[in-house]
Design a protein around this nucleic acid. Structure first.
Lengths: 253, 253
DNA sequence: TAGTGGTCTAGACCACTGA
DNA sequence: CAGTGGTCTAGACCACTAG
């Protein structure tokens, strides 16, 4: 029978909104431009503010928009390509890769990290905090866990604490011969500390890159780095920048 | 002075909720268990349902929960480690890597893809659709763009369309000598088609992996694969599974 | 059909920014 | 200070699933 079964799947309003805004962004706005405020936009489209916000959240997730409290909503620039493990056989802190050591202290790592490192449950390890800056913007915050066994010659006198200490630990680490690096990427949400460092609110989506540094058959160091998911595109395998479609969500409905 | 300036940053309710639920998940629930429904949970914590939902959304984003309409909210298993580019010098469709070719048609690719391939603006390319299954669950949907120049000997007679056609295209592609693969990962949201394929709702968060296959100094093929961000952890650099902390958001507040 | 999560509303108040 | 986005509420209805 001619059952015109279309319209059987009514599109949610926020999704339709997202599509319309996305097209408007492509055709009528340029990078950095400020959008009308949420209340006006909601009124213009005849929806509640919460619904409008749902659409904006999508677009922010996709890196199309940037929202700042007290300021407004602006059109985001294309995502920055960030090289992860540009030289697969290099220790952290080698060369000028954009990482800036911030601090270092001895602390007991999370249980899962301790297990990966093969250290005891209550054994403190060197914990280096670093942050990464690209184009003047903070893009990543990292915690590097380094067991004492990986830097046996490190003396407490070298540098008691702070950034200097962090650099000393990395310098010692580089004396080992690196065999291999293993990376994993997953989605996470920024904790309070990371959020502050990345200039975002708690819960902001981040790409969590876990890197295991193998030397002498052991895991000599382990890094957990959180990248801003809204502004970053992580690139693997040396060569830096592919410029493919700034907005994912390729196939339309 | 003893300015007890704590409490100067009141934590949002939904964030506090998220933390409490997360701890409860660790200690009082096991994988697969069903949580109380949202209305009950909201009442139990004395918040509006929308606020409770905000917390659940966070946990789902982190891969801790799984929600299904009409069914309920369950505790999610740890994320699946999915190898991306396990053999850096292999074409797609080589060996049994979990990818299943679904379809193939000739279509004009998005402008950004055409540019990367170096094809004309209105030139159709072979567009292969594949889906990837791990542990019986769909984890990724892919579109593979292959210019005709990369498979010059392909005849229309080989296989007119469908999965057979897709396999024929991949077989032809493998005759070229692969020089290099470049990967990029970014956050995106599932379009309508991908969402259906991944058994998710439109707008669900996905990890978009863009792979460029280089042969003969050209981009011989380009793949855009979307992985379920809630259930997948992408691993790079051969070796498969690192088992580091199932829930990101390491540093607590 | 009963119960679940998904969508949507209209309103309120808060935290932050910049003039 | 006025204006922005961020949080929260209480309620309604819809779409889906399973018994």
């Amino acid at each position: 029978m001619g059952t015109t079964q279309l319209e059987s799947v009514p599109e949610p309003k926020y999704w339709h909104l997202r599509t319309m805004l996305s097209e408007a962004l492509d055709s009528e706005f340029s990078v950095g431009e400020i959008l009308p405020n949420e209340r006006d936009l909601a009124a213009r489209f005849g929806v509640a503010r919460a619904t409008l916000r749902q659409a904006l959240e999508q677009l922010e997730l996709e890196g199309r928009l940037q929202r700042r409290r007290g300021v407004g909503t602006t059109v985001a620039p294309p995502r920055v390509g960030v090289a992860v493990g540009p030289r697969q056989h290099a220790w952290p802190g080698t060369g000028d890769d954009g990482w800036r050591p911030a601090d270092c202290l001895a602390a007991v790592p999370p249980a899962a990290v301790a297990e990966a490192l093969g250290t005891g449950r209550d054994e403190p390890v060197h914990t280096v905090r670093r942050s990464r800056v690209t184009h003047g913007r903070p893009v990543a915050a990292e915690l590097l866990y380094i067991p004492s066994a990986s830097v046996p010659d490190l003396t407490a006198i070298d540098a008691p604490s702070g950034a200097a200490r962090a650099r000393a630990v990395l310098r010692e680490l580089q004396r080992l011969e690196l065999e291999h690096r293993e990376n994993a990427v997953e989605l996470g949400s920024a904790g309070a500390e990371d959020a502050k460092e990345l200039d975002r609110l708690p819960g902001a989506p981040v790409l969590v890159v876990t890197t295991r540094y193998l030397a002498g058959g052991r895991t000599a160091a382990l890094s957990v780095a959180t990248y801003r998911a809204d502004t970053c595109r992580l690139t693997f395998g040396d060569s830096g920048d592919m410029e493919i479609h700034h907005g994912p969500e390729t196939r339309a409905s």
